[in-house]
């Protein structure tokens, strides 16, 4: 198993290296001169030339590419053109906000999606099944930014029962930084009020974000269960007198969970994309809003760093998923060349 994990991690490396090179290519196709952008407004040609030398922008392109790769590998993503601060520092404070939101959404997707899929399969072709089927296709058809606005309109503006925006009430400061997850850090510091407040603030964004995942998990669970129910051993067990519910839990759910784990990797990409919109609407100070701000202020350093960090997190999650899958079902590990 250890060898499999190592091999799987190594397989991710070429993709990551490619990603770093891709970001480098992106910095070079920008219209305009990065040195001029770094020098800022009202810079003299002499200043720009100095910056060009300082950042090695006068070197041959392949040399710059090597430098870029080396810098990224040592965790140096440069400084934001906009704020002058190291990009990595800004991302470290923002990544946990996005992860807290996406994990919450993922938990909701799984926690609601699997039971729904199961219900639909057990109620095959019944009313619940139809509702779940429609929901599972519809859930993938809703534009997350629109859903976010509609939920905000109803629950925060019209009925005023849920918070409008943010991770916590603005009058609170952030909890002392340990993990960057408000739910964990507030408990760590024993700030119960803040914990509850953060949880409350998480509801609308997480519900909005969980919908596509919920839909696809419900749908995969449903078809997984349906398929399993057709298996000979299940038919046999049924004939012997096992009830649907026992069957579902014993034989079927295990299969369904394997399927779900496979989906998580794909799901995470969708969640990150959705997070950009959801964060922008709920004013959630995560990577998504950071990316949008970077766009508005033409801060390509920040944008590339976000691209890179998200790519790395995405790759890491995919490796993790494969490993989990192999743990659940050792046959998978053997399949890989």
């Amino acid at each position: 198993m250890a060898r499999y994990i190592l091999r799987r991690a190594l397989l991710a490396l070429p993709a990551l290296l490619g990603l770093i090179l891709l970001t480098f290519v992106l910095t070079r196709i920008i219209p305009g001169d990065p040195a001029a952008a770094l020098a800022g407004d009202s810079a003299t040609p002499a200043q720009i030339a100095e910056i060009r030398t300082r950042y090695g922008l006068d070197r041959p392109i392949w040399e710059q590419a090597v430098v870029h790769v080396r810098q990224v590998l040592t965790g140096d993503l440069g400084s934001s053109i906009f704020s002058g601060r190291p990009v990595m520092e800004e991302i470290i404070f923002r990544l946990p906000a996005t992860l807290e939101l996406t994990f919450a959404a993922m938990l909701l997707s799984i926690g609601i999606g699997i039971p729904l899929g199961l219900l639909a399969a057990l109620n095959h072709n019944g009313p619940i099944d139809h509702v779940v089927r429609l929901l599972s296709v519809g859930g993938l058809a809703v534009a997350s930014f629109w859903l976010a606005i509609m939920l905000q309109l109803l629950f925060a503006m019209e009925w005023d029962v849920l918070p409008l925006r943010g991770r916590s009430d603005l009058a609170y400061g952030a909890p002392p930084f340990h993990t960057g997850f408000y739910l964990i850090d507030s408990l760590w510091a024993g700030q119960w009020a803040l914990f509850l407040d953060s949880l409350w603030h998480l509801v609308l964004p997480a519900v909005t974000l969980c919908l596509p995942g919920l839909a696809s998990i419900a749908r995969f669970t449903r078809s997984g269960v349906l398929e399993a129910l057709q298996k000979d051993y299940v038919l046999y067990a049924r004939a012997v007198g096992y009830g649907s519910f026992r069957l579902a839990t014993i034989y079927v759910l295990r299969n369904a969970i394997t399927v779900t784990v496979t989906q998580i990797g794909l799901l995470f990409g969708a969640l990150i994309s959705g997070a950009v919109a959801v964060e922008a609407i709920f004013d959630w100070p995560g990577l998504g809003t950071y990316a949008v701000q970077a766009i508005l202020s033409a801060d390509y350093k920040a944008l590339l760093a976000v691209t890179l960090v998200v790519g790395v997190v995405y790759a890491a999650i995919n490796v993790l998923v494969d490993v989990l899958q192999a743990l659940i079902d050792p046959r998978v590990a053997e399949d890989i060349r």
Binding site: L19, P31, G269, G311, Y314
Partner: peptide
């Protein structure tokens, strides 16, 4: 694989900003 490793929206945003 490299293209698939970056969430589509982030890449589209980056490209969208770098071009007009």
């Amino acid at each position: 694989d490299v293209f698939l490793a970056v969430p589509q929206l982030i890449l589209a945003l980056a490209l969208g900003q770098l071009m007009a």
